[in-house]
Design a protein around this nucleic acid. Structure first.
Lengths: 134, 134
DNA sequence: TTTACTTATACGCATTGACGAATATATTGG
DNA sequence: CCAATATATTCGTCAATGCGTATAAGTAAA
């Protein structure tokens, strides 16, 4: 419980969770959208993974991250409320807007040229060689 | 938002919030129930106060703390959910049980001999010289 | 005003965590 | 195997935090 809230107590991690909201997203998208160094993004994703809040899936060179609801009822409810809260915040809305823009025309962002787009969760079209991590 | 979750990311502070749940409680009760040093309790209460999650009221020598709902809708909802979550946790239930016992017979706890009992929130029977703090 | 009592804060120390830079690991394609 | 790409981890540094001890601040009563 302590660990759970500690994981939410960081601006960068909240921004990451906000972007994942309801999609599975590639690390390179986080780096591009948040305009933060790649090691920093990876570290925070690892933190969230240790806290059991996100899961990773490898697809070739790319790693996709998505939110997983905690088995504990209380934790799941708090997490859901938190995600709703994020949607109300101006800065978070701006991040989501930038993600949508990048999603629609990845070519505009050099770094995202060949990267896989975010995938809405529940879309179980297995694209081939993907491996669940953690 | 970051500060809010950081405030919840500590075991002692979660125990304090659990005990306050729906009553206003005197510092000496926290010290007795949690069996922790008084400076430690005070420090964590100060942290919660800085985060805007609790308020203090002075009554003579005693300080009473109570939870205050954040003005932000999202924060309030998350806080409420969190308090409900606490009620489901074994360790937290044990703390509440000890509080009730101490409440019913403060005389049994030396340290609580003349201390004011917890007061259910909403009970606006102003007992005289009380000062809102913060 | 002196004393006792309750609570808050200052101090020193140890741990944790965040960061950038550099480097390691994993995968793909030549 | 080698090079290129994407991601993870390590390292050194610095700020934040938690703790116990000691002490300060506020209040009530003698």
């Amino acid at each position: 419980m302590e660990l759970f809230f500690q994981a939410l107590g960081d601006q960068t991690r909240l921004r990451l969770l906000n972007l994942m909201g309801d999609q599975e997203i590639c690390v390179c998208y986080f780096v591009e959208i948040l305009q933060q160094g790649q090691p920093k993004i990876s570290r925070h994703l690892a933190y969230l993974r240790r806290a059991g809040i996100v899961q990773a899936r490898r697809e070739g060179k790319w790693m996709h991250y998505r939110i997983v609801m905690p088995p504990n009822i209380g934790a799941a409810q708090v997490l859901r409320q938190t995600l709703d809260w994020l949607k109300d915040e101006r800065a978070m809305q701006a991040d989501r807007a930038r993600l949508n823009k990048a999603c629609c025309s990845p070519a505009r962002f050099n770094a995202l040229a060949g990267a896989p787009k975010p995938i809405p969760v529940g879309c179980t079209s297995d694209c081939g060689s993907t491996i669940e991590v953690n």
